[in-house]
Design a protein around this nucleic acid. Structure first.
Lengths: 342, 342
DNA sequence: TATGTTCCTGAAACCGGTTTCAAGAGACCG
DNA sequence: CGGTCTCTTGAAACCGGTTTCAGGAACATA
């Protein structure tokens, strides 16, 4: 029934009206008399007429769709990101098209292709080349998530400096001196900022930081690999700051599986405050970031008028102290930047 | 530069040719003389002309895109699924549009909307209502992944009966008598089949199965919740068969965090053989399924001619024995269905 | 009755591509 | 030199909607 044979003109003829009237009925315009409306609706119903997306988009000069580009889908971070973005797009009746780069080389081409099918695009920082972003921004509105934007785009990100607070907490409040950092600073702007905050906190506290981070990805399996690298060698660190919760949990699993105790033998922290962080024992000390707000803000910016000056929005984050850093499993705030009270 | 102002006709006038010629050049037809081709290419290059997706799709009556619908993005299973699907679609020059349902109620509407923008759609079983699938199948070609298809669609799935082999292995080879199953059979056809295989193996071995499964989702956090439900009560099971690796790892984390040993205090198995399964200690006993092949087969079916009789494809799976069930951490095959050799 | 409003409707143009078809130019053949 | 064939090119139709614009009917007002 719902065949592609049925077009406006076909329905029009069948109902004995003009294509204009069919169009008006199908878009719900009030400018049609009740009798004609009924007649048209009956034909539409009976033959399962659905306006072609082709024709409508061409005539309206808009797709009614937004693009969302991000690196991969491991874990709840992107899941939350996507859900937030979609719920906001729902408000404006837009469809969302997802594009996961998987860090593949042909991502730029796909993004360009996608740009021809959507009205605006949100791009997670670090997934697409700068040149491709510029090119897309030339055609449609672009917002960068979790990173800085070029002059032509807006951006929304979260405050990564809280990793510095967490690091200070480990050094000052718990007295750890030999820390490690798991994450690949060159891999994404977020990790870069977290690594720099980690270093800055060491400098401030007068403690020698590790020469290099443990350069691994953000998946849980990377945390398991980190466990092998850090725990199977001579002298494990006292505390490990992970770039996100995923790796922190992978590392925890590796430590426990090796018979180590957390935090007595090794303290571990993450970033994101994903649901698992509160469910594991001991609870994972981490940083809570408003992922959903990041997504909804981005979606809203994509709908703002093009003329508006956007600038870069930075959302607040906060430390969440649980058992894995050595705190009792009820959270408190870490030592403030100006002075320490143990 | 790359303004939307530049259309075929505009470029044509600028280059002193007809729109037909511009179209021919832009699609790479050989039926154009070198001089004209050069002239047109120069104008295209200079003004950044990009054929409107609207117009092209309307004229060609195809979108050059496939839809992929699945419930969520937790973990590597869907990541692998998506990558496999995309790599196959790349072969045919198709764009892939992802739609994650997140088990939300408005998924049917989104799927219908998506159906108007793609040439074919792969739908992961259990994400969309039967009625919506039928409706979509009426408009475009549909393939069901990981579940059974209605009469109008094809399907590709993997063999879940291997969970029975694994269960038998736990009962016969390791002598466990009190087993639990973590997963929600009503949630997806895959879990249904795994739960039934779990029950069948009990019946076959003459061992009393648990009255009910532990009805939880497929995320790692569900495994952590299962740990709370199974381990904090009076009498924990000797072995737990989890519906997938994610939950198995969440459960493992919960068990280790409570000071239990795996497999001495509790044996645990999963399904998927994701990368983490081999990285944790002890290694996770699980079932390997060809997720990538599942995806590529699906994508290929979407391109097959519409007239072809499709039927349902079932891909093989195999058990992978590691330390978490009690085996030594080098894998062997479990007891065959006909007889046991301990 | 003449005039002015308001409301409804359809003809036609338009969105931006592709493709068919026929015409014109030039090459080849007898 | 006339006829046929091949190659290149542009005019025009087409894909399936939306929207402008003007005409006609019904109704109100003077």
């Amino acid at each position: 029934m719902g065949n592609s044979r049925v077009t406006v003109r076909w329905v029009a003829e069948k109902a004995g009206v003009s294509p204009a009237t069919v169009s008006r009925v199908s878009r719900g315009s009030t400018q049609v008399s009740p009798e004609l409306r009924d007649r048209v609706l009956r034909v539409i119903e009976e033959h399962g007429y659905r306006p072609s997306h082709f024709g409508r988009a061409l005539a309206e000069k808009r797709h009614g769709a937004l693009g969302l580009v991000f690196p991969g889908l491991s874990g709840p971070y992107f899941s939350e990101l996507i859900q937030g973005f979609e719920s906001e797009a729902l408000e404006t009746g837009d469809q969302v098209f997802l594009l996961a780069s998987h860090y593949r080389a042909d991502t730029d081409a796909k993004v360009l292709d996608l740009a021809a099918r959507v009205d605006g695009m949100a791009i997670h920082a670090g997934t697409v080349s700068e040149a491709a972003v510029e090119e897309v921004a030339r055609q449609i509105r672009v917002v960068i998530m979790a990173g800085e934007a070029g002059p032509a785009q807006a951006s929304v990100s979260t405050d990564n400096s809280t990793v510095g607070d967490l690091t200070r907490h480990l050094i000052v409040d718990h007295g750890y001196r030999r820390l490690a950092f798991v994450g690949h600073p060159e891999g994404s702007p977020d990790v870069t900022a977290r690594w720099l905050a980690f270093l800055a906190a060491h400098r401030e506290a007068g403690v020698e930081p590790p020469a290099d981070p443990v350069r691994l990805g953000l998946a849980q399996s990377d945390g398991a690999i980190a466990a092998r690298m850090l725990l199977d060698e001579g002298r494990p660190p006292e505390a490990v700051v992970c770039a996100n919760d995923e790796t922190a949990l992978g590392l925890t699993l590796g430590a426990l599986g090796r018979g180590l105790r957390v935090p007595e033998d090794i303290a571990i922290t993450g970033f994101d405050d994903m649901p698992m962080a509160a469910l594991v024992r001991p609870g994972l000390t981490t940083v809570r970031q408003p992922v959903r707000e990041l997504a909804t803000t981005t979606a809203r910016l994509l709908h703002a008028p093009l003329t508006q000056k956007d600038g870069d929005t930075v959302l607040d984050t906060e430390p969440v102290l649980r058992g894995s850093c050595g705190c009792p499993d009820g959270a408190t705030r870490p030592t403030a930047r100006t002075g320490g009270d143990g």
